[in-house]
Design a binder for these strands. Sequence first.
DNA 1: ATTCGTGCAAAGACTTTGCATAAAT
DNA 2: ATTTATGCAAAGTCTTTGCACGAAT
Lengths: 125, 125
Amino acid sequence: MQRQTPQRKAIEAAFHSAARPLSPQEILDAARKDVPALNLATVYRTLKRMVDDREIHPVELPGEAARYELQSAAEYHHHHFRCGKCRAVFDLKGCVNGLKKLLPSGFRMTGHDIILYGLCKTCRT
Amino acid sequence: MQRQTPQRKAIEAAFHSAARPLSPQEILDAARKDVPALNLATVYRTLKRMVDDREIHPVELPGEAARYELQSAAEYHHHHFRCGKCRAVFDLKGCVNGLKKLLPSGFRMTGHDIILYGLCKTCRT
DNA sequence: ATTCGTGCAAAGACTTTGCATAAAT
DNA sequence: ATTTATGCAAAGTCTTTGCACGAAT
């Protein structure tokens, strides 16, 4: 049975207000507004529990540390956009056709990732 | 000007015989057959120089350490397949259409990654 | 009262860097 | 002779873990 601690509440609050994938450090920074003494180790441990509880979902991008997002965002199939300037990651809607045609013969595909890179609306100006 | 050391030769040889993206540790293991005293730090430094020289190219997959492949493989636009059993990474040919339609309005796209997951021909049996 | 979570510090994995030595030009 | 690369060890980053304390049930 898991407990209802101020730390976990603060971390959950960070996810709900961000609405985009967050790194452990971003979560720490945000959650410290509620619980200033919060420790990074606690963030890592809490993230692990939340993943086990299927409350959040890891988002892994090439060459970067894992981020996490609410399971509600992961419920539908989606991909990610990474801004080259502010470095933030955004959820994208939809998918594409024709991935199977990339497969060499004899290979079986069970999943895929698509990551788009560029500039977000804010950084584009 | 760069020098022609046995270490660098051994590392280059490892790339040529593998013909797939390799991690620094895989490179160390392979190149030690030629230069047993080879050090991991030397591998990292040599990889950096080879990237600067455009002789190799980094291949970054979600949630994994960087691998590298010969620039000749990177000359054409391509993506990667990752086998969930043997964990090897393979090059794929071709690409897909319709990625731009995933972009939120106001965002600009400058590049993309596609990674397919599944079982390779060998592991599928 | 018991159990589980937290903070802190230490330990790990991976990568980078300083420095004296050795090798290449 | 000069310049650059190497090996080793130390230092960095990010993440995990041990332990005693404190909080939740």
